[in-house]
Design a protein around this nucleic acid. Structure first.
Lengths: 342, 342
DNA sequence: TTGTACGCGTTATCAG
DNA sequence: CTGATAACGCGTACAA
């Protein structure tokens, strides 16, 4: 798979060329480019002129080979493309990450890959392409993440499911507590038969939200059998809702582990001729744009997704500077948002 | 903004170390790693053992510094994050691109940035981080793209708006023809007062679809004044629809330049108590998942978004191999998809 | 403050 | 077929 570019293109200017134009040494140009203070003003000026004249941009490969840094970070998303693009939650997180990165001179490399035949993603990471990695939406099966921390600083979005999570850095909300908030709402408005469409149960967020749901019902002596597992997609939630409705037709309250899934559930409820919140009250999770995109504005458990992305990037950046006092876990607050569905 | 990683991490193994273990020279290891055929089988075997033992992965910076290639491509999207994530069209294109790239050993760097204060994106590109660039959703204001082709091979998704588009490589559909298809449908089902919510008029796709719309109405002597400009977002389309309805309350047919926008229009129509397709028939564009996500399945103009992404990547990859016979323009077919809205 | 010289990990050229 | 050795472009002790 060797390839060679045939088309002739003007070679990028190098430090050497800039030095020649400015009449100084390569080292001096390097100092100016990297903002060293130990350079006389007039030389800084002449070098700057030369840089602009030649339109010089440092070669990243050479720079990172010498400095052993890439000034790039990776956002690893072990999902398939459709799930990644389908859920507004990811958009918010990425937005937060880039907002933080825009204040630095790090760039972000987005790596979306569930099916990764040749371990291409891992190779990419280990080839020294990035200085650190952000990992969101990882599943229990994604074993490679454990190894990654031995290679570079890693920060998770959502508590990691690996055993050694004591050492891991992550940003999350208290998913169980959030789920309690949502479930309690259903109790408070007088629902008697409360069920749940859970998230993917191979993900910490899915597990913890289910735990919070069960804990709340247990506390008041309600049964917790009306649960069907979803996978954090609208289609998966629709299927789960169908199963639940067949099994427990009397459900009148539903805690759904994400807004996107709630939208899916909403559609099925309509199919079955059930009104929301009349026949069935629904509480979602996320408070993403999906919450207000459907036919019924969703009452939901808000989590600060954008801020979480920001915090993730911030944590990683601080680790990269060698800051020893970076907290391993950053837990952000959730709160209940009341709208029409419950 | 100097930073230094303090934490001690095991250094990545190098060619040198592998060579030592295998008892050969660096050069030979390099040959094996790069699959040169001119190496004796037994040496290949011993080197392979050493590589696995040390868990060796080539250093990308060193490799690209020496080979002058990065094996990475960039997908540049001059939009803000929310628009990028909000429209399923992008998801399809990215999916197609990655499908093609999965067959190669190129990786993709996603660059989403409308507001780019420090020209960070351009610097990134010009720093030799990638061998070529894919550009989608570019606006007339995005002048930097013109300069880019002088630095590296570029392929556009959608015809570029720059003057020198004769030289440019791009993949597109005949947007005007597609719009004619959609508009004609409205005529065919007997609508008399046909309007349009156009796409962003600073984008070729927006302009061309509007042109096709107008051309069709002109042909049959219908007025083309019932047009309001959208921006390819649901919210923007909603606002535009509101303006249109105030100005032309008698509209009974609407060609909307994207499915996502059609969803926005649908909401407003409902607000105004208009039924679809009863009072107002709607034809969208894209045939993205958005077309079937709303309350009314949309009749729409299909464009093969996923295949377009694939074709873009394929075109760029072929250019990268020096293939002189790569067609500058790849125009893919559109077709009308009949559903419920028109 | 400025310049010299070496090293970063690979690829590629050229002897052998 | 294999092994020295010279680039590749830049950062940075070290020397001046």
């Amino acid at each position: 798979m060797t390839s060679r570019v045939r088309q002739a293109r003007p070679p990028q200017p190098t430090l050497e060329m800039v030095a020649a134009v400015a009449g100084v040494s390569r080292a001096t140009v390097s100092r100016v480019v990297n903002g060293s203070t130990k350079v006389s003003p007039e030389i800084v000026a002449s070098v700057t002129v030369a840089v602009n004249e030649l339109n010089y941009v440092p070669n990243r490969a050479a720079r990172s080979l010498a400095s052993r840094q890439t000034q790039a970070l990776a956002l690893v998303v072990p999902e398939d493309m459709t799930r990644f693009f389908g859920d507004p939650y990811f958009a918010a997180v990425v937005q937060g990450i880039t907002r933080r990165l825009d204040q630095s001179d790090y760039t972000l490399n987005l790596l979306v890959a569930s099916s990764d035949p040749q371990h291409k993603t891992l190779r990419y990471l280990r080839s020294g392409n990035v200085d650190g990695a952000l990992i969101i939406s990882h599943h229990t099966g994604d074993d490679f993440v454990a190894e990654l921390e031995t290679t570079m600083p890693v920060v998770f979005g959502g508590r990691p499911s690996t055993a050694d999570d004591l050492e891991a850095y992550f940003v999350d909300v208290d998913n169980a507590a959030g789920a309690e908030l949502g479930t309690q709402r259903l109790i408070d408005i007088g629902r008697h038969r409360i069920g749940s469409i859970s998230g993917a149960i191979d993900m910490p967020a899915g597990i913890d939200r289910l735990t919070g749901f069960e804990r709340t019902l247990n506390r008041v002596g309600m049964p917790t059998d009306a649960v069907e597992h979803g996978d954090f997609t609208a289609a998966g939630a629709a299927a789960a809702t169908r199963r639940l409705l067949e099994r427990c037709p009397d459900v009148d309250g539903l805690f759904v582990a994400s807004d996107l899934m709630a939208i899916g559930a909403l559609g099925v409820l309509r199919e079955y001729g059930k009104s929301v919140p009349g026949d069935v009250a629904i509480v979602g999770f996320d408070d993403s744009p999906a919450a207000t995109s459907g036919p019924v504005p969703l009452t939901t458990v808000h989590q600060p997704s954008e801020e979480m992305g920001y915090a993730m990037a911030d944590t990683l950046l601080r680790r990269l500077t060698g800051d020893e006092h970076v907290p391993h876990r950053t837990i952000m607050p959730t709160r209940l948002i009341l709208r029409d569905s419950a």
